[in-house]
Amino acid sequence: MMDLKLAPSFSLIALNAQRSLQMTTVKKVSLRCMAAAVILELYLEGCFTQSENKLTLHKEALDQSYSTLYRETVLQPLLHNSAEVTGDLNWWLKKASRKSNHQLKKFETAISDDLQAMNLLEDIPSLIGSDMYFDSAEVEIRAYRSNMEAYTSITENMRAEILEEGPVTDEVICMLWLLRECGCMQDFFSLNELEQVNIKLHDLYQSNLWAKALFPIQIRQGVELGIKRFLALKTKFAKTFIGSSLNLIFPALERSRAVFIETESWFDNSNQRLDAVITRLMSYGHEVKVLERGSIATLKIDNLLYDAIPHFVMMKVPIQGVRLIPKRPL
């Protein structure tokens, strides 16, 4: 697996399963953090001239061989026609992340094109488009899928550094901060593990100069992150026993995540029903792996885990299928 810089590595995590054609609120949060990751990437590579707590970036940085289009889309609005720009780390991160929708889209195109050129990102039909209840109003719904090997490598290496004893690299410190700012720490750590993560964050802040400089900075935007957390709250509710039951009855409760995939035939055997749904999903271009079978199977679909619950709905005729409920670490 190729050695990726910080911004592309974080982008593979942040863009996975995001809608590729629509600018959703959740994707805005991710893109703002991805833009901040560009600044951190430049800092780690020594592209800034530092004097006390001030960081100076010279315009020549855009012209050097290590410049890329995704970096340029972040830096050009900051540099304008100036030969150099100076600010502290807090200023740089907030300026980079607070972009207009037009600038965010331009940045998204630049970095997604870069990742697709490396065969690390694909644009596929969104899983929600397979939901029997979903009405797209004839709007095409597509989503990003990160290369599964790269996605697993990045997330597992990060988890290992945080949860195991030993030193933590500056890159992983940046990853932790970025996950915190985009509000998706719980996507990669269980509730029990989050307690360990909090302890690790505190210890790093006390003992690591880079963490001490970075961790107090907040770039999150209240309204956008609030909406994202509200959506996450609905998702969390639908994972409880009562929430899951309600979600089967009222699928609109978690419209953005839970999906019902109907089968084209009637099966007496739940395994046959599951296999039929898997075959259908794979025909749409999704990568599906069965991690566990049983009354409630566990599937890995495009890097994300789902509980697959056999279900049928009563319409003019009974319709069999499988309800896919997003599953986070336990």
Results as ranks from 00 to 15, higher is better:
residue 142 R to K: 03
residue 248 L to R: 09
residue 155 T to M: 03
residue 26 V to N: 15
residue 214 L to K: 00
residue 190 S to H: 03
residue 158 M to R: 00
residue 77 P to A: 03
residue 214 L to E: 05
residue 7 A to R: 03
residue 3 D to F: 00
residue 210 W to I: 10
residue 108 E to L: 13
residue 175 M to G: 11
residue 12 L to F: 00
residue 186 Q to R: 09
residue 210 W to Y: 08
residue 311 H to Y: 10
residue 287 E to I: 14
residue 251 P to T: 15
residue 214 L to V: 15
residue 243 G to V: 10
residue 181 E to P: 05
residue 268 D to Q: 14
residue 328 R to A: 06
residue 176 L to C: 10
residue 253 L to T: 12
residue 68 T to M: 05
residue 120 L to D: 05
residue 322 V to G: 08
residue 92 W to A: 06
residue 84 E to V: 08
residue 78 L to E: 14
residue 121 L to P: 01
residue 9 S to F: 00
residue 95 K to Q: 15
residue 204 L to T: 01
residue 248 L to P: 13
residue 316 K to F: 06
residue 61 A to Q: 05
residue 287 E to Q: 11
residue 62 L to W: 01
residue 190 S to A: 13
residue 256 S to K: 02
residue 85 V to W: 07
residue 120 L to S: 08
residue 266 W to E: 13
residue 297 A to H: 09
residue 206 Q to F: 00
residue 167 P to Q: 05
residue 140 E to N: 08
residue 268 D to H: 04
residue 190 S to Y: 06
residue 149 E to M: 05
residue 93 L to Q: 07
residue 227 I to P: 12
residue 74 V to I: 15
residue 322 V to D: 10
residue 120 L to F: 01
residue 181 E to I: 09
residue 235 T to F: 02
residue 115 L to E: 06
residue 309 I to E: 02
residue 258 A to H: 03
residue 254 E to Y: 00
residue 12 L to M: 05
residue 53 N to T: 09
residue 299 L to Q: 01
residue 212 K to T: 12
residue 128 I to Y: 00
residue 161 E to F: 06
residue 154 I to W: 01
